[in-house]
């Protein structure tokens, strides 16, 4: 197995001393180059976990290590944030500059990248997310999906090893969601960037390597998406929605139609129906 880039070891966290735990005894290993998803309803602690990994919060108990650096020790903070970048939910509230190019430069300026090196890195990052033609536009005139891709470019320019996406598609329309997700998948596939994808949309997690379901601050299920989502009963208690084809196959099985377990996509369902009905 590849070395874990992100490692959470029995992590607990509460926002105030002695207050309720937002994250409880969570252990997690995200291997280099993998695409993992964390699912959960609002208030399940998934966003808190994201911020613990990036060093925005420090665990009350346990340890988070990113690329071997403990988030507890302050001298690691900036290096951790550079290596494990983060893209947030609201596309409007994470862009700083009035021009796309300068927004991408923001992170580079912060970590002291020499001026001569900047334009090249900015252009590469923008090209990688398909936003280079918009380099000189004002962010507020872009669509939600485009703004999120600019935010990704801003992180990408810092040459991170992992990117944490904290519900980065929650406020987008279907088209924006597709744009962002396909850009992220490409980065993962082609550049080997480790992705931790936090969401409450089941469909988005369907193609990840490994998924974790959080509920009331704990990780309650872990496994391949197929192991988790194809069983409607297993995820129901956590108020998550199974993919439509998993629901349909479950309903058909109850009616006696022998659809195999683990059907998730339209293609798989069509094949099953073809197998049974021809």
């Amino acid at each position: 197995m590849a070395e874990p880039i992100i490692l959470a070891d029995h992590v607990s966290f509460s926002y105030e001393e002695g207050g309720p735990l937002a994250v409880q005894d969570v252990s997690l290993a995200v291997e280099k180059g993998s695409f993992q998803a964390i699912l959960g309803q609002n208030g399940s602690g998934k966003s808190t976990l994201a911020k613990l990994i990036n060093g925005l919060y420090v665990p009350t108990e346990g340890h988070v290590t990113v690329c071997g650096m403990d988030t507890q020790s302050e001298e690691n903070t900036w290096e951790i944030r550079r290596r494990a970048g983060m893209v947030f939910q609201n596309p409007d509230n994470q862009l700083v500059a009035t021009v796309v190019r300068e927004d991408v430069a923001f992170g580079l300026e912060n970590i002291g990248v020499p001026t001569e090196e900047m334009p090249g890195r900015i252009e590469k990052a923008l090209r990688d997310v398909g936003m280079l033609p918009f380099a000189d536009r004002a962010p507020h005139l872009l669509s939600g999906g485009q703004k999120q891709r600019v935010a990704i470019a801003g992180v990408l320019a810092m040459q991170p090893e992992a990117i944490i996406f904290d519900e980065s598609t929650a406020m987008l329309d279907p088209q924006g969601r597709r744009e962002v997700l396909s850009a992220v998948k490409r980065l993962n596939r082609e550049q080997g960037i480790t992705v931790l994808w936090i969401t409450h949309f089941m469909e988005e997690a369907a193609e990840c390597d490994r998924a974790h379901v959080m509920h009331q601050g704990r990780i309650v299920l872990s496994g391949t998406p197929r192991e988790i989502f194809s069983d409607v009963k297993k995820i129901k208690p956590y108020h998550l929605d199974a993919p439509p084809m998993a629901r349909l196959s479950q309903a058909l099985r109850q009616q006696g139609m022998p659809i195999r377990q683990g059907v998730m996509t339209v293609e798989e369902m069509a094949e099953e129906v073809a197998r049974l009905c021809r």
Partner: peptide, 8 residues
Amino acid sequence: AAGLDPQS
């Protein structure tokens, strides 16, 4: 329903 989790 924009931005709500599946249950809400």
